[in-house]
């Protein structure tokens, strides 16, 4: 394919149609009646040829040739018109499709812009949440940091993203969980269950699509541990 992008011309004005034979250039036949100049009778229904005896009546051969030529030219016009319509229809269908895709794209653009921001907000939430848990574990006041985290969760909620979590003992679900590490465990019944949630998950409210799975450590059965 060469460097000109395919379909580049699709928005050109269709009316231009260069090269079409101009109808005015066609040989015009005499109005009505027989035109071959033969001496046959003339019926009443047929209009009389208003011929000036001084003007020579075309000979049959000449008229026949002119008609033939005309028919040929008309045929070409019809052919080119049909081709023009065919190409126009194709252009129209392309425009329809582009329009449709454009509509979809507009929805997609909002998401394309929002996605990286959502990802960054989730990361920020994760870090705040981790600090909150650390402060809580050390017996310190975590309420200020926790309030910031809650605000971020609300911003995400306004973007249509909800958080969800998991409980220790929940079995691994690849749709909802992302294992970060394994924790050895002597109890076979706890094999591949959540040992500890490291970070909550986030999913789209409308579609349920998981944007970031719950990050967790999972038990792995190891006899004798």
């Amino acid at each position: 394919m060469n460097s000109a992008g395919p379909g580049d011309e699709m928005f050109q004005a269709p009316a231009a149609a260069p090269g079409y034979p101009a109808p005015s250039a066609a040989v015009a036949p005499a109005q009505g009646g027989r035109t071959d100049g033969s001496p046959g009778e003339v019926s009443e229904q047929e209009p009389q040829l208003d011929t000036d005896p001084q003007v020579p009546v075309p000979h049959a051969e000449e008229t026949g040739a002119a008609l033939h030529d005309l028919a040929g030219r008309l045929g070409k016009v019809e052919e080119q018109l049909a081709e023009f319509h065919r190409r126009s229809a194709h252009r129209e269908s392309v425009i329809d499709r582009l329009h449709e895709e454009n509509q979809l794209l507009q929805g997609g653009i909002a998401r394309a812009i929002l996605d990286p921001v959502v990802a960054d907000l989730i990361r920020l939430y994760d870090q705040l949440d981790r600090e909150v848990r650390r402060l809580r574990a050390e017996g310190q006041d975590e309420r200020l940091l926790s309030s910031f985290g809650e605000d971020i969760a609300q911003i995400l909620d306004r973007c249509g993203i909800e958080s969800y979590s998991a409980e220790p003992g929940d079995p691994f679900d690849r749709n909802l969980h992302r294992p970060l590490a394994v924790v050895a465990c002597p109890d076979e019944s706890r094999h591949n269950t959540v040992a500890e949630v490291v970070a909550v998950g986030f999913a789209e409210r409308d579609t349920g699509r998981v944007r970031r799975p719950v990050q967790a450590r999972f038990y792995q059965y190891t006899p004798g541990t």
């Binding site: 690849r174 749709n175 992302r178 294992p179 590490a181 999972f218």
Partner: peptide, 21 residues
């Protein structure tokens, strides 16, 4: 590719995540 069961495989991000377990 994660061979989840004898009849089911998962390809892609979830398969990559599952490699830990």
């Amino acid at each position: 590719v994660y061979f989840e069961s004898p009849d089911n495989v998962v390809v892609g991000r979830q398969a990559k995540d599952s490699a830990v377990l």
